[in-house]
């Protein structure tokens, strides 16, 4: 794509900007509500907690319940965290959840064949990362839209998971040591929660405090401008996809250890919840950009809502309903924010 193509594109998208005065009014209104917007998720979360704690003091409002939720959501949170890098760089990785499922099967199957846990884990991490290398190649070199490329990869990984398991649930064959990695608890909360905290911290530092974070947002913000500052845009995009896939491998290992079994259908359900969280997260803390803290707030806000509804006696399908509605709502919110941003740009 040449520069002139890009500029033409930009020019047409810009010409639809609304007129200045209305935009100015909207922009000033936004400035008043800014502090609330930024932390609205936290407030909302508090309200949800208080609401269900009062209604269901015996079940919802217990320490035990919160400890369980913290552990249960660690996997979803880690899948969401894995998505932050590609989303920041403006590429989608729809294969991340299927990759988690695939890696659960790989790490379990390898151990059933008698491979020691450390070797099996290493090979699984490698397999996960390799998926990202293929994604990166297809998106950057073959110039396939990331949405399509990773959707296709998703299907391939699902097929791979089926092939590995033969459609059966794989049980046993893994050592107790391996299971301990996923099932031991500390202060009543299972280990994956702490893995998630460490991963959050690492990603937070990378995204907010290293040049790499800058590059991700530069590429995601304006790819053409990023290229014209000498950034190696292709490497950044492929790198983001490789990282998300490598993290999917890691999450796969942790999930396998905490489940103690493997089947081809454990990964995919995480996709929607994770994407909902990342997009809802872009409306929080650092509005307009994917960020670690916002994503975590979103994961636990959604989980708390679902849990409260379930304990109130809502049927199981409320989980999917809630996540679907939240995803649409989150993206609509983000789009509204972006529109306001554009409007205030036009006013300036």
């Amino acid at each position: 794509m040449t520069i002139s193509d890009k500029t033409a594109e930009a020019a047409t998208s810009r010409s639809t900007a609304p007129n200045g005065s209305a935009a100015g009014a909207r922009a000033s209104r936004r400035r008043i509500g800014f502090g609330f917007n930024k932390f609205s998720g936290l407030y909302l979360w508090a309200i949800v907690i208080v609401f269900f704690a009062i209604r269901l003091p015996q079940t919802f409002g217990t320490t035990q319940n919160f400890k369980i939720m913290a552990g249960d959501q660690a996997i979803t949170a880690m899948v969401a965290l894995a998505l932050i890098l590609p989303v920041a760089a403006g590429v989608f990785d729809l294969s991340v959840a299927a990759n988690v499922g695939f890696c659960v099967c790989v790490v379990t199957r390898l151990q059933m064949h008698g491979m020691s846990a450390p070797i099996a884990i290493l090979m699984t991490l490698f397999a996960g990362a390799l998926v990202g290398v293929v994604n990166g190649f297809v998106v950057v070199r073959l110039e396939v839209d990331s949405f399509i490329a990773t959707l296709g990869m998703s299907s391939i990984l699902a097929a791979g998971a089926y092939w590995i398991t033969g459609g059966q649930q794989l049980v046993g064959g893994v050592s107790q040591k391996f299971l301990n990695l996923g099932q031991n608890t500390l202060w009543g909360i299972s280990y994956p929660f702490y893995y998630m905290l460490v991963l959050s911290l690492v990603l937070y530092i990378i995204v907010e405090h290293t040049p790499v974070g800058r590059y991700l947002f530069a590429v995601g913000g304006n790819m053409q401008a990023a290229r014209l500052t000498g950034l190696r845009v292709d490497r950044v995009r492929a790198g983001a996809l490789i990282c998300s896939s490598a993290l999917a491998g890691l999450v796969g290992v942790i999930l396998a250890a905490s489940l103690g079994s493997a089947s081809q259908d454990v990964g995919p359900p995480y996709l929607l919840a994770a994407f909902s969280a990342v997009f809802l997260g872009t409306t929080q803390i650092r509005p307009g950009r994917a960020n670690v803290v916002g994503t975590l707030i979103a994961v636990y806000l959604l989980a708390t809502g679902v849990k409260g509804l379930q304990l109130s006696g809502a049927p199981v399908w409320v989980n999917g309903l809630f996540n679907g509605v939240a995803l649409i709502f989150a993206v609509a919110l983000a789009a509204r924010g972006a529109r306001r941003q554009r409007a205030s740009n036009a006013a300036a």
Binding site: I3, K6, T7, E9, A10, A11, R14, F217, A218, G221, N222, Q224, A225, A226, L228, G288, R289, Q341, N345
Partner: peptide, 14 residues
């Protein structure tokens, strides 16, 4: 310093 700074030079959200 490229022509068409909005499309080619600026990160407008930043």
């Amino acid at each position: 310093v490229p022509a068409e700074r909005h499309a080619n030079a600026l990160f407008l959200d930043a």
